[in-house]
């Protein structure tokens, strides 16, 4: 299942936290050879993990990380504005209605669940955007992910790409709306109510009706 967890709450999920940062090291350093730093624990982190981002994490049945992505508002510091504006022709994203999604990561331990993990993360992303009234999501990703995004039914508009082969990095913009969610559900067969339940579990609501009567 999907959990939405702010960085400052990750310590409540040590297994999920540690396996996520290890899987990120595996994907971005070992497999893709991106210029990322891995610490003595084998964790891949950068300066954006330090400014309390929101993680969208797929938790495997054993409580470890199956896949994840990292969300930040573009009104603050973002990876795309700080390091990748050459991929966007110098356009800097700064809108309360656009959030950045980076470090889309799949665990090598996802096994036969890999397809479900990728699809769930995408559905969870669009759900988050709809719930918080967003307009778009901008991201930097391994260029070869585009075909996976397309298969899941939510492809970004490509803004630019640098490099070739496994080192190719792209910037893209995803529109957030009910149509995007419907497309993902149609392509993957996932129930639209599923992502609502993930959101509700991470951001639980209480009725404020009774306060009114006071």
């Amino acid at each position: 299942m999907i959990k939405y967890i702010y960085a400052d709450a990750l310590d409540a999920f040590p297994k999920l936290r540690d396996s996520m940062f290890k899987d990120r090291a595996h994907q971005f350093k070992t497999r893709l050879n991106w210029d990322v730093s891995v610490d003595e624990n084998g964790f891949e982190t950068d300066e954006y993990d330090a400014i309390n981002p929101l993680y969208v994490i797929f938790e495997l049945p054993d409580g470890s990380h199956g896949g994840s992505m990292r969300i930040l508002p573009t009104t603050g510091d973002t990876m795309i504005n700080d390091h990748f504006s050459h991929l966007t022709d110098g356009v800097k994203f700064s809108s309360p209605l656009i959030w950045e999604c980076t470090r889309f990561c799949m665990s090598p331990n996802a096994g036969h669940l890999a397809g479900e993990v990728a699809a769930s993360l995408m559905l969870a992303g669009v759900e988050l955007g709809i719930q918080f009234g967003l307009d778009s999501c901008v991201g930097v990703f391994d260029a070869r992910m585009v075909s996976i995004y397309r298969r899941i039914g939510w492809a970004p508009e490509l803004l630019g790409t640098q490099g070739t082969g496994k080192e190719a990095i792209s910037a893209g913009l995803w529109p957030i709306d009910a149509e995007a969610k419907a497309q993902i559900c149609a392509k993957t067969g996932m129930d639209p109510a599923l992502s609502e339940s993930w959101f509700e579990a991470s951001f639980p609501s209480t009725s404020l009706d009774d306060i009114l009567v006071a």
Binding site: Y6, D8, N52, L54, L72, P73, G76, F132, G133, F203, P204, S205, T206, S207, L208
Partner: peptide
């Protein structure tokens, strides 16, 4: 202070 998302009061901790 902790978060960046728009907060519906219903989803705050009133426990």
């Amino acid at each position: 202070l902790q978060h960046f998302h728009p907060m519906d009061w219903k989803r705050l901790d009133w426990s």
